[in-house]
Design a protein around this nucleic acid. Structure first.
Lengths: 222, 222
DNA sequence: TAGATTGTTAATCGATTAACAATC
DNA sequence: TAGATTGTTAATCGATTAACAATC
C-alpha cells in the first residue's frame, strides 16, 4: 500500500481535481472521462489518468470515472475524511479571515481556538470561538487536543510561537508569516507567502509586456 | 534581451532569493557565495548559479555575489522597481488584511481603492483608503489608473467582477476566490487558493504518519 | 459483440545536479 | 600568482505526454 513514492507535483494537483469533481457532483454529473475532465481543467487527459493511477484504479474501461466515488477517494487521500482541530495564532484581519471561513469545517478543519497578544481582543469571539491571550496557550494545548496551528502573525514572532506550539505537541503548522520555519522532522509545515504570490504576478505583468507571452495561464483562455 | 525562455520553476524561486538577500542586506552582509547561500536556503549551489545565470552574470569569479547589487537586480526582474496601483474588491477580513499589509507598498504595490457591496462599510477607511460601493467601480476605473485588482470575495461573484474590471482596462488579477478564472490572454492572473494549501498540509500530515517521510520540508531540519 | 476508455509502458521533454574550465 | 568561485556544459534525474494493449 505504501510502496511507490508519490511525487509532489501530483499531490499539488489533487486539491484542484477535488474541487472540479465537487462542482460536477453538485451539478448532478454522474460519470466523467479523462478527456472531458481534461477539457474542463485544461490539463492533459494523459496526466489525469497517470495521476489517478498512482493511487489505484479508480476508473473503468469504456465508462470513465464515477464522479461521486472519485471525489470521495481523493478526499480520503487528502485526509479530508478526518476531523482536525486548528488553532489560529494572531487574531488580526488575516487570522479572523481564516476563523470566519466556514468552508474549512466542511473539509474537516475545525477552528477550536484563537490567540493574540492584544488584551483589547480578549473575550471577543469569532464564530463563537473566544479570542484568548497567548499566555494561556501552553495550558490550553495541554487540555485541548490540537492538530494544526495557523500562524497569522508578524514574522518577528512566528518562530517563537512555532517552537512553543511544537513543544506542546502540535505536529502541523500552517505558516502565513513572511519567513521560513525550521522545525523538527516530525512536524509538517505548509507556508502561504502572499508577498511571493504578488511578486509572481508582478513578474508576469512585466514579462507579458516584454514578450507577449502570458505564463500565468493554463493552456487556452476563452 | 528577450531571447531565452525562463522556466516557471525559476521564476517561482526568485521571490525567495529576494527575501533572503534582503535579510542579508539588512544584517550588513556585503558579499555571498552560492555555497553560503545554498547552506542558508537549503537549495543546491548549482541551482542558485544556474537560476541567476538565466538573467546574466551577476556574480564574479573568486568573489561571489554582491548582496546589494543582486538584491536590486532580482527586484528589477520581479518588477518591484515599478509602482503599481492595486484595488481590492471585497472588504471582508481578507480584503482588509491585504489593505493593511504595509509591506506591499515597500515593494511597489499601492492600495488605491477598496470596494464592497455592503452599504454598512461605505465610507469606512482602511489606512486612509475609503471603502467604496462596487456600483462606483466602472466610473472609478475610468478616472483612476489601476494596474491590479485583488479579488477577495465569494467565488459566486469572482467571475463577474473579474470581467468587469477587465472590461475597464485592468490587466492583472490577484485572485483569492475559490475558482479558476478564464480571462483574455492579455490579462495575467495569479491565484491564491487557501483551501488547496490547507489540503496540502492535511495530505502531508497523513502521509508522514503512514510513511515517516516528511515531504513538506526542504532538505534538513535543525 | 463493438465501441469506448482506462491502465500502463515507452518516448519525450524539462529541470536539477555534477563537474570543470574560465576568470577574477 | 594562487585560491576561490563563478559561468556553463554535460550527465542525471524526474515529470509529462503519447501510444496502445487490456478490458469493461
Amino acid at each position: 500500500m505504501e510502496s511507490k513514492e508519490i511525487s509532489r507535483a501530483v499531490i499539488k494537483r489533487l486539491p484542484r481535481y477535488y474541487r472540479y469533481l465537487g462542482e460536477l457532483l453538485e451539478s448532478g454529473v454522474e460519470r466523467i472521462s479523462s478527456n472531458e475532465l481534461s477539457d474542463r481543467m485544461q490539463v492533459t487527459a494523459s496526466q489525469i489518468r497517470q495521476d489517478l493511477n498512482n493511487f489505484g484504479g479508480f476508473g473503468q474501461q469504456g465508462y470513465g470515472y464515477n464522479v461521486k466515488h472519485l471525489h470521495a477517494e481523493i478526499g480520503k487521500i487528502l485526509g479530508l475524511d478526518k476531523m482536525y482541530h486548528m488553532i489560529i495564532i494572531g487574531a488580526g484581519n488575516l487570522g479572523q479571515a481564516l476563523a470566519n471561513y466556514a468552508q474549512f469545517e466542511k473539509w474537516g478543519f475545525k477552528v477550536t481556538g484563537i490567540f493574540d497578544v492584544n488584551p483589547v481582543l480578549r473575550g471577543v469571539s469569532v464564530r463563537n470561538v473566544p479570542i484568548r491571550m497567548v499566555e494561556e496557550l501552553p495550558e490550553y494545548l495541554k487540555e485541548n487536543e490540537t492538530h494544526i496551528a495557523a500562524l497569522t502573525l508578524p514574522k518577528e514572532h512566528a518562530r517563537e510561537m512555532a517552537e512553543l506550539v511544537v513543544a506542546n505537541g502540535v505536529k502541523a503548522i500552517w505558516n502565513f508569516a513572511h519567513t521560513d520555519l525550521k522545525l523538527p522532522d516530525d512536524v509538517v509545515v505548509e507556508s502561504v507567502h502572499l508577498s511571493e504570490s504578488l511578486m509572481q504576478l508582478s513578474y508576469n505583468m512585466s514579462n507579458y509586456k516584454k514578450t507577449g507571452k502570458n505564463h500565468s495561464k493554463q493552456k487556452k483562455s476563452f
